[in-house]
Design a protein around this nucleic acid. Structure first.
Length: 464
RNA sequence: GCUCUGGUGGUGUAGUCCGGCCAAUCAUAUCACCCUCUCACGGUGAUGACCAGGGUUCAAAUCCCUGCCGGAGCACCA
């Protein structure tokens, strides 16, 4: 099986579907996973040189290792050879009709006057194309199909056209005569032994077009399945590489891994495992209609994967400083690193004379609240007074449990989320977490530690 | 205009080919409750769907017809 990306940028979430599905199939049935960059248009779908590696990187993030990586722009001579063969069989003809003119004839089912040229002339003109003797728009090579085919999309389609602008890859910069997707892809699928093709509904007619070429060569066409587009909820941004690129260029996004971007690099940085994405993509099935992927599905999968491993810490946003007093006041709090794993030990959070809590968590005056891992306090006149109550206050008397941090010696944290950046103060022990570690800020959510700078750590928010 | 293709709860999906075991599966979501010193994890329960109308049949989500709604192609893009 193969994934045939157009290397125009790093992948967005929707792109994950192809490697997820074919990778899973290949793993399951011991198949071959071929990545073929279909980079045969240096003009309108101009390849982005950095995208080749970025895409391979995205695939590896998803957990797949391609068996073979090809670039169509390395294989142009091969396409020429098959074109020559096709011409000799009388299966293709050079055509100098302007696009609009041919389009009109096609609509009526009228053949191009070039259609019956003898193969020698065609071959000669095709070599002219190969040698760059024509400019863009002057000459194309058409596959001779059926000019009266009831589906106009299949009538004598273009196999090669001229492009004046050099390919960005140096190795391919000299070519001017480029194959169209249907020709290139059709030849490659056969040559690389692809047995099963999955592609989008936008390419519904491709197989039917390519079938004409396969018939000329007497090849057997692979099994084909089409699926609809994937839309993803939870993003304001259009899921399209070009839109994301524009937003980055305009400075609205910091880059492909901005937490607001619907890209694989983004969710990777947020600590979401490729496996979680793959599972969700597999769950979408193979429907030909468009589907909406709920991010919550990816989040649920990821939560399953990371919860056991994620140690717990406190982070207080918009911290309200509240003095703590009372004779029963403990010197420190010691909540467990993980509620289901006492063996991992407990955090020690020393409390001097005040704590920070989130404004929404402040109880009404005179009411009690339980500072998790620390103890019960009563809120009196803007200060907490330790009550010395035991845990039954929570279990039986309905006292709420909240998270908190000491007022001093905290770690400043910037939390980058899909909805923008937040700041807060984390408990001292947070400083000991490793970069790349996935932790949970209790009552807030799972985050990936991105950076521990001297006075401001950065985390990327994954999900709650 | 021509040609493809599809419509099962909020979302995704199973079932549709070979009609009955489907008063419709599973997941996610939402809401309760249990557990719990997190609104995490785990457990229990609830909510919620066969596009519409005809037809065939003892029996239709499944077969047929019509309609409605949607997606895609008809590029010298991929």
């Amino acid at each position: 099986m193969r994934a045939a990306p157009n290397p125009n940028g790093p992948w967005h979430l929707g792109h994950a579907r192809m490697p997820a599905v074919i990778g899973t199939y290949c793993d399951r049935y011991d198949g071959e996973f071929v990545v073929r960059f279909d980079d045969t248009d240096p003009e309108t779908k101009r390849p982005d040189l950095s995208a080749y590696d970025a895409i391979l990187d995205d695939i590896s993030y998803l957990g797949f290792e391609p068996d073979e990586v090809l670039r169509a722009s390395n294989r142009v001579e091969t396409y020429y050879e098959y074109a020559r063969e096709l011409i000799e069989m009388g299966g293709a003809y050079t055509c100098d009709l302007p696009a609009e003119e041919f389009s009109e004839l096609k609509r009526e089912g009228t053949p191009s006057p070039n259609r019956d040229k003898d193969p020698e002339t065609v071959l000669e003109q095709f070599e002219g194309m190969v040698n760059g003797e024509y400019s863009a728009g002057e000459m194309v090579l058409r596959v001779k199909t059926d000019i009266e085919h009831k589906n106009p999309a299949l009538r004598d389609w273009v196999a090669f056209r001229m492009i004046d602008r050099p390919h960005p890859r140096e190795e391919a910069a000299d070519y001017r005569c480029w194959p169209m997707l249907d020709f290139q892809s059709g030849i490659d699928d056969h040559l690389t032994g692809i047995t099963h093709i999955i592609r989008g509904i936008d390419l519904q007619d491709s197989a039917k077009r390519q079938q004409f070429v396969y018939d000329y060569f007497d090849w057997e066409y692979p099994e084909v399945l089409h699926w609809g587009h994937v839309q993803i909820d939870a993003y304001d941004i259009d899921i399209s590489t070009s839109t994301i690129k524009e937003l980055i260029d305009a400075g609205d996004l910091d880059g492909w891994d901005d937490p607001r971007a619907p890209t694989l690099q983004s969710i990777r940085r947020r600590g979401i495992r490729g496996e979680a994405v793959v599972e969700s993509m597999i769950g979408l099935g193979m429907s030909t209609s468009d589907v909406d992927l709920a991010m919550s599905s990816i989040y649920a999968n990821n939560r399953d994967l990371v919860d056991e491993g994620a140690n717990r810490y406190f982070l207080v946003r918009n911290g309200e400083r509240v003095p703590v007093g009372g004779d029963e006041k403990p010197a420190a709090g010691s909540p467990p690193l993980h509620p289901n794993h006492e063996d991992r030990g407990r955090r020690e959070i020393p409390v001097d004379d005040a704590v920070l809590v989130e404004p929404d968590d402040l109880p009404n005056d005179g009411e009690r609240i339980w500072l998790k891992g620390y103890g019960c306090v009563r809120y009196d006149d803007g200060a907490f007074v330790a009550t010395g109550d035991d845990i039954d206050a929570v279990r039986e008397e309905g006292v709420d449990v909240i998270h908190w941090v000491p007022a001093d010696n905290t770690v400043s944290v910037t939390m980058r989320t899909p909805d923008g950046d937040l700041t807060g103060e984390a408990e001292p022990g947070f400083a000991e977490t490793d970069v790349d570690e996935i932790i949970q800020f209790e009552r807030i959510g799972f985050v990936r530690v991105d950076d521990h700078a001297v006075d401001d750590s950065v985390v990327y928010y994954a999900h709650d």
